[in-house]
């Protein structure tokens, strides 16, 4: 069933990845192959089973809401690809 469904170029758009035509073609074939294998999961009877999101379930881990040290603006900006006046410079969003 997998080959007909996964459209690599469409999913790549969703995740903001520009693929070359060569990549799209190769990934399409490779991932169809992987999905075909993964489809063996449809053989398993999962009725009534809870989904296990974590290996060791833990819920509602809270910490005290207290002030503590954090990055200075300078530290937060130190890896920015572009910055000015203590701010991140981003690509123009509104025309």
């Amino acid at each position: 069933m997998a080959e007909g469904e996964l459209d690599v170029e469409y999913v790549a758009k969703l995740v903001r990845l520009r693929l070359t035509p060569e990549e799209a073609e190769v990934f399409q074939e490779q991932l169809a192959h992987v999905l075909q294998y993964v489809n063996k999961l449809s053989d398993v009877d999962v009725s009534g089973l809870e989904a296990a999101a974590h290996a060791v379930p833990m819920f509602n881990v809270f910490r005290e809401d207290e002030a503590r040290d954090c990055f200075t603006a300078g530290e937060a900006l130190q890896n920015a690809p572009r910055q000015a006046n203590g701010l991140f410079v981003v690509t123009k969003v509104v025309e």
Binding site: V38, L41, S42, V44, V46, L49, E50, A51, A52, A53, A55
Partner: peptide, 15 residues
């Protein structure tokens, strides 16, 4: 449902 949810359910069986 077919992939992610089902994989989590089978993860529970493995556990």
């Amino acid at each position: 449902d077919a992939y992610y949810l089902r994989a989590q359910q089978v993860r529970e069986l493995i556990r």
